[in-house]
Each structure stands twice: as C-alpha cells, then as structure tokens.
Amino acid sequence: MTTTDTPTAPPTPMGTIYGLGLGPGDPDLMTVKADRLLRGARHVAFFRKAGRKGQARQIVEGLIPAAACEVPMEYPVTTEIPLTDPRYNQMLSKFYETYTDILRGLAARGEDVVVLCEGDPFFYGSFMHLYMRLVNHVPVEVVPAITGMSAAWTATGTPITWGDDVLTVLMGTASEDDLTRRMASTDALVIMKIGRNIDKVRRALQAAGRYEEAWLVEYAAMPGQTVARLTEANGKVTPYFSIIVVHGQGRRP
C-alpha cells in the first residue's frame, strides 16, 4: 500500500512595519513614497495623548483609506509626572512592549502596518522605541522625512548655516548649565522640547550671549504658524510645537 503525502500550505509571508515620516505638518511636504504607502494602507497605527486625536493622525486627515483599520497608541503618561520619576520609564517601557506585541502579531499574519510619525522617524521620535524592539523580529522599513526644525528655520526666511558653521540641536529638558555651555560653543543652534522649559532656555541663551539672535517659531509648516524674535515674545508660554532657532553667520563667498 502506498501513501500520498498531504501537501502543506506555504507559510504566510511576514508583513512589513513601516515607520512613515510625515514631515513637519503640511501634508504637501510628505514624500511621494509616504503618500503612496499611506493611501494603500490596510492598518494605520499612530501615537496620541489620551483623549486627543493625535497630531500625526491630524496631518493625514482625508488620506487614510476608508477601509483601513486604525490603531491608536495612547501614551500612558506625557507631562503628568517628571522625567526623573522612575515610574516614567517603567510606564513607557510597558506601553512600548504592549504595542510591539500588537504590531508583531499583525506582521506575523502577513499584514503590513503603517506607523505614522511626525517629522522624521529617526529624529527624537516615539517610533524609534518600537523600531528597536521590532527590527530583529519582523521586517521594518523606515521612510525618512523633512524634520520640524527644517521647516522652522525655513520659516524665518534666513539660512541656518553658512560655510563651516557647526549646527547644534539641543533639548530644552537639559540642565541650564549644560544648555548654556553648548549654546556658547556652537555657531548655529536649534532648541526643541521647549514648552515648560522656556524660562530656563531664555536664561541659558542670555548667559551664553545668544538671546538677541534667537527666533521663536511656533507650529512650523502647520496652520497657525508664527515667527517672531524671542525678545518680542517675552513672558509667553510656548506650545508643544515650538522651536527656537539661532542662525549661523559663517564663511560666505
């Protein structure tokens, strides 16, 4: 008697997780590749604060296919407790692990997932924390984009660097002493994550002798964009989407 082997179905090919850079906020500044992937997406994931729509999701309003499954990823904490509180990293670590498992599960079923990322995915973005947890387990592709700081210095109407200028990018969350030291030792300067740190950033700019040169750009390349000398915005509380720019003055022909 002979037996016939029952054919087995081929394994389901893995889906790909796409970290999709959306640029600074204007949908017209998205890359052609980002637009193509988004318009063909079956699963779209995005970060947001609880109770909010999410800035990344807002940027692509009207571009997501009607049949796509949306996966909002709500941060467990943003500014409710300080960064130095041990609970901060513990809560965020658990958050990233949870959504890593969800995205891995979708990829294992052969589903591609687009993860929306404000600015560039590899530049101070939340997606990086998912990427490092996913990259050795499922296919992951990062689609780069124009950064928010590019839109900010463009909004000032003045080039950010000339010749051999050194550009330094600082986070307003750094210590005042560290901010002052780095501000004083660079040619061109971008300061991000200002928000509640604005008074500290002002003092550091003054101590470094850069205050008079600084520009404040709010909502760069978004509705409501404003551009002003920082000296003219004294006492103002800055929104989350604000960047300070100090232009270089280097070598020119």
Rank of each mutant, 00 (worst) to 15 (best):
M1D: 05
T2F: 13
T3G: 13
D5N: 04
D5K: 13
T6A: 13
T8Y: 00
P10N: 12
T12K: 02
M14V: 08
M14L: 15
M14E: 14
I17K: 02
I17W: 02
I17S: 10
G21P: 05
G21S: 08
L22H: 03
P24R: 12
D26E: 06
D26W: 05
P27M: 04
D28Y: 02
V32E: 13
K33N: 06
L38D: 03
R39L: 02
H43W: 13
V44K: 11
F47G: 09
R48I: 00
K49P: 00
R52L: 12
K53E: 14
R57P: 00
I59M: 15
V60P: 08
G62L: 12
I64M: 01
A66F: 05
C69H: 14
E74R: 05
E74T: 15
Y75D: 03
P76I: 10
T79Q: 04
E80R: 13
T84L: 10
Y88R: 11
K94T: 12
F95Q: 05
F95K: 03
Y96T: 11
T98M: 07
D101A: 15
L103S: 10
A107D: 10
A108C: 06
A108G: 09
V114K: 07
V114Y: 04
C117P: 02
E118P: 00
E118C: 11
G119I: 04
F122S: 14
F123P: 00
G125H: 06
S126I: 00
F127S: 02
H129Q: 07
L134E: 14
N136Y: 05
H137T: 15
H137G: 11
P139V: 15
T147L: 01
G148R: 00
M149A: 04
M149P: 00
T156D: 06
T158K: 04
P159T: 09
W162G: 00
G163S: 09
G163M: 07
L167C: 09
T168C: 11
G172E: 09
G172A: 05
D177S: 14
L179C: 11
M183N: 01
M183S: 03
A184N: 03
A188W: 03
L189C: 06
L189Q: 01
V190H: 03
G195E: 14
I198H: 15
V201R: 05
A204T: 07
G209L: 09
G209T: 11
G209I: 13
Y211P: 00
A221H: 04
G224H: 10
G224N: 12
Q225I: 01
T226H: 12
L230F: 12
T231Y: 00
N234V: 11
N234R: 10
N234F: 10
P239V: 09
P239R: 06
P239N: 09
Y240P: 01
Y240W: 12
S242Q: 10
S242R: 06
I243G: 00
I244Y: 07
G248L: 10
G248C: 14
